[in-house]
C-alpha cells in the first residue's frame, strides 16, 4: 500500500446543544496521513482545538471497528462517508487526496434530535425494540438447543438481518427519514426462525406502531437505506416486514387493531 500525506479543508457542523442554532465551522487540516482512520483525523483536530483553548468537536464513537454502531457522521451527503458497506470509524483517509474539502454533518432526522455537534439521540430505536424486538423467553425456559432443527438457508438469512448494528444510517440516508430498514431487519430475523413464530403477528404490529409514533417518515422505495447500510442489510427486509404486517392483519385475532393502510411502512 502506498502511503501519503495530504492537506484538507474540513467543514464541520457545530451546535452547542439542542436549543441553539448550529453552523458550519471550517478547519484547515495539515499533513494528514493516508493510513489514519477518519476518526483519528478528528482526534488530530480535537487535540489541536484543545490546545488552542477551543471546544473539541463532539461525536459518538466507541468500538472503532465497525460493530457497535455508535459512530454516525454524514459526510459529503452520505451516511458514513464514501465507502460502500462501511462505518465512519472504518473509513480511512486513503479515500481522500490532497486538497479535498470534506463536509461533515450529524444524522438529520426529527426522530434523532441533536445533543451536541455531531452527536444525536437515537433512543427511538431502543423504544422500537422494546415494543417487540425479542422472543419472550425467560431464562431457564429453554429446551435443548438442538431439539429444533432450523433450515440452514433460513438461519443464514436470519443472521444477515441480525447483523444490523442499529447505527441509524438508513434513517439518515432516507429523504423521508424512514426507519423501515432497521425495523424490517429485526422483524425478518425473528420471523425467519421457528423460535420467533408464536409472537410474529403481535411483534410486527407493535413495532410498526412504535416506529410511527417516534416520528420516522414513510418509505418512498428509494432504497438509499440499503445503499448506505454499513452491513449491507437488504431492502428485502422491508418487503418481508410489509408482508408480515399485512399477514398479521388478515388474521382474525388482530381485527381490532388500527387500519394497516395508515401506517408509514406499507
Amino acid at each position: 500500500m502506498e502511503h501519503y500525506t495530504m492537506n484538507l479543508t474540513l467543514k464541520v457542523w457545530r451546535q452547542k446543544n439542542r436549543q441553539e442554532k448550529g453552523h458550519f465551522e471550517t478547519y484547515d487540516m495539515k499533513d494528514i496521513l493516508s493510513e489514519m482512520s477518519f476518526l483519528e483525523m478528528f482526534d488530530v483536530l480535537n487535540e489541536r482545538l484543545i490546545l488552542e483553548n477551543k471546544e473539541p468537536v463532539v461525536f459518538d464513537q466507541d468500538c472503532r471497528e465497525g460493530i457497535c454502531g455508535a459512530c454516525s457522521m454524514y459526510i459529503d451527503g452520505r451516511a458514513h462517508g464514501p465507502w460502500q458497506k462501511n462505518t465512519v470509524c472504518q473509513l480511512h483517509m486513503r479515500a481522500y487526496k490532497d486538497g479535498d474539502t470534506i463536509v461533515v454533518e450529524p444524522w438529520r432526522s426529527a426522530a434523532f434530535p441533536i445533543i451536541k455537534d455531531l452527536m444525536v439521540d437515537r433512543k427511538a430505536f431502543d423504544r422500537i425494540i422494546e415494543a417487540g424486538g425479542f422472543i419472550s423467553v425467560n431464562t431457564g425456559n429453554a429446551v435443548d438447543a438442538n431439539s429444533t432443527p432450523v433450515d440452514r438457508a433460513k438461519s443464514e438469512e436470519a443472521f444477515d438481518s441480525a447483523t444490523c448494528i442499529g447505527c441509524g444510517a438508513c434513517v439518515a440516508a432516507c429523504p423521508n427519514s424512514s426507519a423501515v430498514l432497521f425495523v424490517g431487519a429485526k422483524i425478518s430475523q425473528l420471523a425467519l426462525l421457528p423460535q420467533g413464530d408464536p409472537e410474529r403477528k403481535a411483534r410486527v404490529i407493535n413495532m410498526v406502531d412504535q416506529m410511527d409514533k417516534e416520528g420516522f417518515g414513510n418509505c418512498g422505495n428509494i432504497y438509499n437505506c440499503e445503499a448506505e447500510c454499513p452491513k449491507g442489510i437488504s431492502v428485502e427486509n422491508i418487503a418481508r416486514m410489509n408482508r408480515e404486517y399485512l399477514g398479521a392483519f388478515s388474521s382474525s385475532e388482530m381485527q381490532t387493531r388500527p387500519n394497516p393502510a395508515k401506517h408509514n411502512g406499507v
Binding site: 425479542f134 422472543i135 423467553v137 431464562t139 431457564g140 425456559n141 429453554a142 429446551v143 435443548d144 438447543a145 429444533t148 438461519s155 443464514e156 436470519a158 443472521f159 441480525a162 430475523q189 425473528l190 426462525l193 423460535q195 420467533g196
Partner: peptide, 10 residues
C-alpha cells in the same frame, strides 16, 4: 439453549 431460544442465529 437460552440463546437459541432467544433467536440468536448461530
Amino acid at each position: 439453549d437460552q440463546c437459541v431460544a432467544q433467536g440468536v442465529p448461530f
